[in-house]
């Protein structure tokens, strides 16, 4: 059986907000290490990779690997019924036909339980290699969100160029062009999460669909910083770390020109 108790139930809402615009269903994999999800959008150009480590839960029990196929739209409806301060417990059997969600109010004066049907999802599981990125950019997540939103007002594709001087975001649309350069500022008085840091072995440049990047920024409430990892001609990774718990990562294929 699987049983996991999460003190910050609000975290689950934030995690679902970060994926609900991209996928409609997914297999949550319950394993002794934690709860994970890998799922692609319907056009198979972007991938979501979530890990919630077992240590991040107040109580965690998982005897064997259990795939829990869930409809994300329905899951959002159920988790919405939890208060943002509620303690959430997720429970299911080894071969679950349904999953139980238990919500306890912080003061323990209200207890709700919801049972949701599982579904069999035949998805393609990809092996994402542990790779060394040619360029890694760490920046405030709110800044990245703002930047993607601004760029999307002008064009559909953003070109991201990373040099040691900084990161240049450029787009072109019917009305004109936009360029925003974010420079690394590690020597300032900013707190760590307000800094922009760039680490590169060589300059990298590639174009990406803003529609997807904008969806990824729905994860902003999960972390004060976001990390972008790029390798020439490979998908970009956009990572939001969840404190003491794991991460939400997105991979997006670069645009190609024939």
């Amino acid at each position: 059986m699987f049983e996991a108790r999460l003190l910050q139930g609000g975290l689950l809402k934030k995690v679902l907000d970060s994926i609900k615009d991209i996928i409609t269903e997914g297999n949550f994999d319950c394993s002794p290490n934690g709860l994970s999800l890998q799922a692609m959008d319907s056009s198979h150009v972007s991938l979501i990779d979530i890990l919630l480590e077992s240590e991040g839960f107040e109580h965690y029990r998982c005897d064997r690997n259990i795939p829990m196929g869930l409809n994300i739209t329905n899951l959002v409806k159920m988790i919405k019924c939890a208060g943002s301060e509620d303690i959430v417990t997720i429970k299911c059997e080894d071969k679950p036909d349904n999953v139980t969600f238990l919500f306890e109010s912080k003061d323990n004066d209200k207890i709700s339980d919801f049972e949701m049907k599982t579904m069999t999802i035949d998805d393609e599981h990809l092996l994402v290699p542990d790779q060394t990125y040619t360029a890694v950019v760490k920046m405030p997540s709110a800044e990245f969100q703002r930047l993607c939103r601004d760029m999307a007002a002008i064009g559909d594709t953003v070109n991201i160029s990373v040099t040691k001087e900084g990161v240049r975001f450029s787009t072109t649309g019917d009305m004109g062009t936009a360029n925003i350069t974010v420079r690394p500022n590690p020597s300032g008085d900013q707190k760590e999460e307000e800094r922009t840091e760039v680490q590169i072995t060589e300059p990298v440049s590639a174009g990406f669909a803003l529609r997807y990047l904008n969806s990824f920024t729905k994860a902003t409430p999960l972390s004060p910083t976001v990390t972008l990892g790029m390798v020439p001609n490979l998908p970009i990774v956009v990572e939001y770390k969840i404190a003491d718990m794991g991460h939400v990562r997105y991979y997006l294929a670069p645009k190609i020109e024939d």
């Binding site: 198979h44 393609e124 092996l127 294929a253 190609i256």
Partner: peptide, 14 residues
Amino acid sequence: VVGQMPLSSFFGGA
């Protein structure tokens, strides 16, 4: 033509 390759062309299947 500008397009995107599916992710499976970059990452192998499990």
